[in-house]
Amino acid sequence: MRSSPKLKPGIWDALVALIVLVMAVGCACAVWTGDSDGGGELEAVVRMDADGTDTEIRMRLDGLNRVERTVTSNGYTLQIVLTETEAWVEASDCPTQDCVHTGHISRSGQSIVCLPARVIVQLVGGDGGDPGVDAVVG
């Protein structure tokens, strides 16, 4: 035995757990904030790897009726559904099915990632893809 591990949790273990927790909350603040869930025009951005080239589809969700898109990327086929307020992956032939399990996303900043198919469905705050503005006057 090289070193004998302590087998009872102590105050220092709690500290480690605390640090991880603070990091989680900190990350959540950093990654999940700045999203307006009201007002802004939502846009769905679908990035994929079709035939080895990166392809991007952008679609304004505002005023959109239900749209179904079938995309083939990295050898897998995903059925993506976009509505006025939500986006989700209806079906996929990828092995992990994580993208399908992620369910519906509806807020700017949220995303669905399908690793095997290398597809990302992301909701962004509209604004035509420019650097984005916080308010519009006019």
Binding site: A17, V20, L21, M23, A24, V25, C27, A28, V31, W32, R47, D54, G109, Q110, S111, V113, L115, R118, I120, Q122
Partner: peptide, 24 residues
């Protein structure tokens, strides 16, 4: 790295939270 996109960062907070339990 694999996706060349930072979108997966979105999951980091949840994964960190879950790691508390899997680690324990």
């Amino acid at each position: 790295i694999s996706l060349g996109n930072t979108a997966p960062l979105y999951y980091l907070p949840i994964l960190l939270g879950v790691s508390l339990f899997t680690g324990a």
